[in-house]
Each structure stands twice: as C-alpha cells, then as structure tokens.
Nucleic acid binder design. Sequence first.
RNA 1: AGAGAGUUGGCGGAGUGGUCGAACGCGCCGGUCUUGAAAACCGGAGACUGUCACAGGUCCGGGGGUUCGAAUCCCUCACUCUCUGCCA
Length: 424
Amino acid sequence: MLHIAYIKDNKDQVIKGLEKRFFPDAAQTIDAVLMLDQQRRNTKAALEEVLAESNNAAKTIGLLLKAGNKQEAEVAKARTATLKEQSKELTSLLRQYEDELTQTLYNIPNVPHLTVPSGRTAEDNEVLYQYGQPPALDENALPHWELITKYDIIDFDLGNKITGAGFPVYKGKGARLQRALVNFFLDEAQQAGYTEIQPPIVVNEQSGYSTGQLPDKEGQMYEITEEKLYLIPTAEVPITNLYRDVILKEEQLPVKNAGYTPCFRREAGSWGAHVRGLNRLHQFDKVELVQIQHPDRSYSTLEEMSVYVRQLLEKLELPYRVLKLCAGDLGFTSTMTYDMEVYSGAQKRWLEVSSVSNFEAYQANRLKLRFKDNKKQTRLLHTLNGSALALPRIVAAILENNQTSNGITIPKVLRPYTGFDKIA
RNA sequence: AGAGAGUUGGCGGAGUGGUCGAACGCGCCGGUCUUGAAAACCGGAGACUGUCACAGGUCCGGGGGUUCGAAUCCCUCACUCUCUGCCA
C-alpha cells in the first residue's frame, strides 16, 4: 500500500506512474485519496479538540468531588454529555473516512520506477541480456514430459491418483535431482551472505494482507477454512512477515534471508496446452531470497540480486535471458522487476524461472517495517525478493537441453549433490 | 479434544476506577571514574498522530459497554501458555 505522505509529495509522478501501468482513473483516484485524507485530518483534529475538553472536564470533576464540592461537580457533569455525543459522532465519521481511505489505497498498485519501459503486455517487456546458445538438439528431441516417462523419474499419473492434476510425484533420480537443486541453491545463497530460514508453509490471514496476496488474490491461495490459514504461494510470504511490526537499526541492514519451501498455487482457470508437464504446477519447490534494505540502496540491491540469479543459471549451464518487465506486466506491488527465463530446447520456448523485484516501501508500509535513521527518525524500509530459483522449469530445461542418445547429462555443479552424472 | 491460567513499554514484571504512558529489574544509549575495559555511580530514552515549533490527541491483545473519568469493572472475540489425552 502506498504511503499517504509519499502520494502527497509526489502527486504528479504517482499519477503518471499509475497511468503508465494502465490503472484506470489514476488522477481521479489520487485526488479522491488526497481529499479523503484531508477530511480525515480535519475530522481527527475536531475530534481531538473534543477529547481534550472531555479529558479536562473529567479531571476537574475529579478534583471537585475530592474537595467535596458536589454541586459544582454535577454542573460540570451535565456539560460533558454534549461532548460525549460529539465525540461519538466524530469518531464514527473518522472511522468512515479511514476505512474508505485504506480501502482505496489497498486497490492502488505500486508506482513503477521511472526507468520501467512502458507497455501493456508481456510482448512489451524489454530483453536486457541474453546468455548462452540454444542447445543443438536432435530433430527428434523429446519434450520433458516425455523424458520423465521414458526415464521414470517424475510421475503425473501417480500424483493424479493420490492428489490431483498438477501434483507430480518425483521418483528415484528425479527425486534426488530435486533435492540436489534445493541443496545447491541453499548452499549458494549461504555463500552469498543469506541467512537460511525454514518457515511454516501455512500462514494466517494477517500475513497474507501484509505481503499483498490478500485481499485481491485470494483465489490463488489454498485456504484451510477451519483454521483460516493459507498454504503459502511462495516463501516470500512467511519470510517477509517475520519482519512485520519491526523497527530495525540501520546497522542491521541489509537483512538477507533465503528459504526453501514448497509453494502452492491454485492457478484457477489457467490450464491449457501451453502449461503441460512441469511448466505450471499446483505444488512446486522454490528457494526464495528476501532482502530488507535502506531506501537509498534498494536499487543497487535489486541489481545485486539479479546478478546473483544470473550466475546461478550460468553455473547450471542453462541459456537464459533477462527481461525488464514493462509497466503493464509489472506485479501489483512491485516498482521494478527482472524476469529470468531459461531456454527449453525441445519446447523451443523461454520459461520464466525467476522474478526479482523491488517493492520499495509498498510492503513495508503494510508490514510496518521500519528503521531508525541517523537522525533518530523512524522511516519505512524497502523490501525486495527474488526466486533463486523455482525448480520445475529448471528441471524441464535441464532434462530437455541435456538429453543425449544415451541419457540425460547432469550439470557439473550438481553432481556432488546428486551423486550421479547421468539419468539413463 | 478436555480443564485451567494468562495477554501491560526491547525483555521480565508491578499496578489502587481519577494525580498512570504506567513502579521495579534487566537490557540499551550518554557521562564520571579508568591507560582501556569491567564494576560502581550519575543521567537519558516507548510507539503513532499532529505542529514551523509548541500544544493537543491515541495506544496497557482486538472490538463493544458501564462511568463525568477505565490498564483497572462488565460483555465479546482472538491469541498464548500449563496440565490431561492423542501423536511424528
């Protein structure tokens, strides 16, 4: 949620930014926000005056009673009745403005960074960088959904049987490859200075609100209705929420956390031919990075995280490209996002495997995540996160790109983790 | 799942319906002493809102109520802990 003071100070820029991402009626909405805020303030000021008077009256009455001056006390009491009524009215009015204001703010997305390219859809994303060559594969190279059956390493039918579509079962070398990737990613993160976190994979409602999954993306999360808990769609949710209502010291920055969790997505209504096999799942594994950074340094941190993800892909010997998302394709809470896509040789497609974003103070405002700067001012921090990495599409690309006539070659860096160098 | 206890400032922990934003201890910051540190002693400090700055207002788990006045009394919800049961 955008901070009201930020909107006030940067009104034109905010409107322009929202228009860039095709937020409808940006100018009117921002005007409405500012007006609501003004009304809210006025009401609050009025209410506080009444409260101050009541407080005073109460004190006086106390003193009068103590002094045994009953009559005067009664007179004073009578006067407070009006004040009480006024304060009740003003309170409910104030609440009305406040509710309307937060409701409006909840529905305003973050403002794209100035350098974010304009554009409406994924077509308009800017390709910043490309690495490696598409693998030279046989004409009859197999897509991963055939390879996994051929080598009996991932089984969708068994998943269907015990759970449902989109919940594959990993077997034998398939399972070990998963474990190898998770361990490789976690070890790398640790070497890069991230503290490993193992969070719960169900969260409460409040956590969903703070990172922005609620209220608008309810449909994407599996809900445990009995307890009103949600299966996490990403480790971003529990890990970022660790810092809810926290005031950090400047010298604690940046906070760097990494966590492996399974991730659950309902992905309601988004199934089709283009999401076959491992391309889209209801449950998948991911190592996620979360950083909390000083507002002055969040963009250099974004670059740092992007470089980090890139070198992971290079170590895995996967051809990839880096996209800078255009304003229209940007996530609701993000100001700038890099997507990393690997090339999947047999499908001949780019597959998104990581998304690295800066949220500036948008999440921090909901989280009440702040720090004290050197002037002892309490200020909102910036949050960032990135996948490093999501497993299924990495697995798809490894399987497809590394297939040979006598099996699938495991990338060198993973061999110490898998304990084998070929799936045959 | 059953029974009970609890929720107060960074932590621990007092708290009488008015003078309580709240004793005390620990921790933290500054100072004195010291070559330096520790100890000791002295001093300081909650969050939010608001103002040019004051003032003012809000916050003792959330919401509601009683009262001129609520951390304190009542209702309600949430959460936590302990014991019993079950279980990796």
